[in-house]
Design a protein around this nucleic acid. Structure first.
Length: 465
RNA sequence: GGCGGCAUAGCCAAGUGGUAAGGCAGAGGCCUGCAAAGCCUUUAUUCCCCGGUUCGAAUCCGGGUGCCGCCUCCA
């Protein structure tokens, strides 16, 4: 059984073979910290989290680098608009980003290099590219000359001759100083718009272009040649294509072996946009009372190359699914005595889970195997066939697979308040006295207080609603 | 204009040539004092539409339709 990834470079599934046995170098394009990240951004980070967790599950030693873009046009605009220094804005939104990924239980990267802390590396890289004849200078800015790199377009499949400059409408082609609109900036000369955002370097007064930071920082932390590079599909062109050009021309070595891109997310079937009112940051959703784990579920549960529909119905369904898993865990914790050890069922579930995940991280299939397992074990438990050992094994399996999904931990057991326990006792007394009107009234009272009582053969079980 | 992706039940979503996973919601049943939880049954003769290839197609090919993405700094 081999782990297989769909490599954008080549557009086909390939067995994952790391450069160094047992290790995986992973670079994921991080946020531009000029605003709160939105759920579309988090879909990408969630996919990368799943990838990383699965690599760890498979026993790889993962070195994960995620950059923080902390100098860039939008940031400079924000500085101007707010009158605040760049560092104040980026520090604020970097903090918000770290808080958000913690809320979503996304494992932190090993290093979060920021562009502004790697100006030296960027400058050195540009100098190398210049020495090797890949650049030209125009009005103080330095551009990469694409015509010096034959392989350009291999990742995205784009044919440069057919590109329509400025077709996206975002930028006027004639605003570019580059000789050809397709050439991109490595170093941008300072102009008045930049205010006090600049660095005095051997290349002159200015700031780095966007693409170069990823090349410079991935090289510093992972080496010139590493295993996996991820990002959203929109980064494929031009960002990743440009990274390849810079890195290959600078080092002369291969760059990245596996390129993985995740598809976009739509909200309620529509493109997320502020004008449609369906643009959500994580905190927007939390304010609506949606639990973080349900958000994690919805962001994770669709295969990463599939467009994902972020729907409120799906969030509700995810909450129910989480509750089902939590109830199952609770039930397993209560099982005592002799019975099946569930060895066979656990082994089958894990094998199926791994089979699906090995196939380019088929998380939907993998989740399905876990539910199939839960149903089977519940069925056996209904027959009183599961022993304490089996229950323990089932919980251990969920814990093991939870390392991959982060969805199976169950709810934290909350201490039940004294007054709730007293009500439960009173209800039991009423039930024993067959005073069901009274016991049902107490049950309603408990429900109003946010607690559910379930009668089991071993007595009442109280759960937070 | 160029390039790419997607379309599977009420909703979310697997499945890429062998006869439609799973979750949520709904219906019926078992259990229960009644519930809840759980289990069982049920819910797509069919996978956007029209052709074609094949013994066999949701899967491959051709043509439509719809949605989405990229085309110089958006995950």
């Amino acid at each position: 059984m081999a782990l297989v990834f769909y490599n954008t470079l080549g557009r086909k599934k390939e067995a994952f073979t790391p450069i160094t046995e047992g290790k995986a170098g992973l670079y994921t394009c991080g946020p531009t910290i000029y605003n709160y990240a939105h759920i579309g951004n988090f879909r990408a980070y969630m996919f990368e989290d799943l990838l990383k967790r699965y690599l760890l599950f498979k026993g790889y030693e993962v070195r994960h680098i995620m950059n923080l873009t902390d100098v860039e046009d939008k940031l400079i605009r924000t500085c101007k608009e707010t009158g605040k220094p760049l560092s104040e804005i980026t520090r604020y939104y970097a903090d918000a980003f770290f808080k958000d990924i913690k809320t979503l239980d996304i494992l932190p990267a090993d290093v979060y290099p920021a562009a502004t802390e790697h100006i030296h590396e960027v400058v050195e890289m540009i100098k190398t590219l210049r020495d090797r004849g890949h650049t030209y200078e125009e009005q103080g800015s330095i551009y990469f000359r694409l015509s010096t790199f034959d392989e350009y377009g291999a990742l995205s499949g784009i044919n440069l001759d057919e590109l329509q400059a400025g077709a996206s409408g975002r930028v006027q082609a004639d605003e570019y100083d580059a000789e050809e609109a397709r050439d991109f900036a490595l170093w941008k000369a300072w102009d008045e718009e930049d205010g006090d955002v600049f660095w005095e370097t051997e290349l002159g007064k200015g700031r780095p272009g966007w693409h170069i930071e990823c090349s410079a920082m991935s090289m510093k932390y992972l080496g010139a040649h590493f295993d996996i590079h991820c990002g959203g599909i929109d980064n494929m062109f031009p960002h990743h294509e440009n990274e390849i050009a810079q890195s290959r021309c600078c080092s002369g070595e291969p760059f990245v072996n596996y390129w993985l891109h995740c598809a976009h997310l739509v909200v309620e079937g529509k493109k997320m946009s502020k004008s449609l009112g369906n643009f959500y940051t994580l905190r927007d959703l939390l304010e609506k009372g949606i639990e973080p784990l349900a958000i994690r579920w919805v962001l994770l549960a669709t295969h990463y190359r599939q467009p994902s529909n972020f729907a409120f119905d799906a969030l509700a369904a995810a909450s129910q699914s989480l509750r089902r898993i939590a109830d199952f865990r609770l039930r397993m914790q209560e099982i005592r005595g002799e019975g099946s050890d569930l060895q066979k069922e656990c082994a089958a579930c894990e094998a199926d889970f791994v089979r699906d995940m090995d196939d380019d991280l088929n998380i939907s299939g993998a989740l399905g195997t876990v539910f199939t397992f839960i149903r089977e074990v519940n069925r056996q438990a209904d027959q009183d066939e599961v022993g304490a050992e089996g229950a323990k094994n089932a919980l251990a399996l969920l814990d093991k697979l939870n390392a991959v999904t982060g969805l199976f931990a169950g709810v934290r057991e909350e201490a039940v308040p004294e007054e709730i326990l007293e009500l439960v006792d009173a209800r039991q007394k009423a039930r024993r006295a067959k005073d069901f009107a009274a016991s049902d009234a107490i049950r309603d009272q408990l429900a109003a207080a946010g607690w559910v009582v379930e009668d089991t053969p071993d007595g009442p079980r109280v759960k937070k609603l």
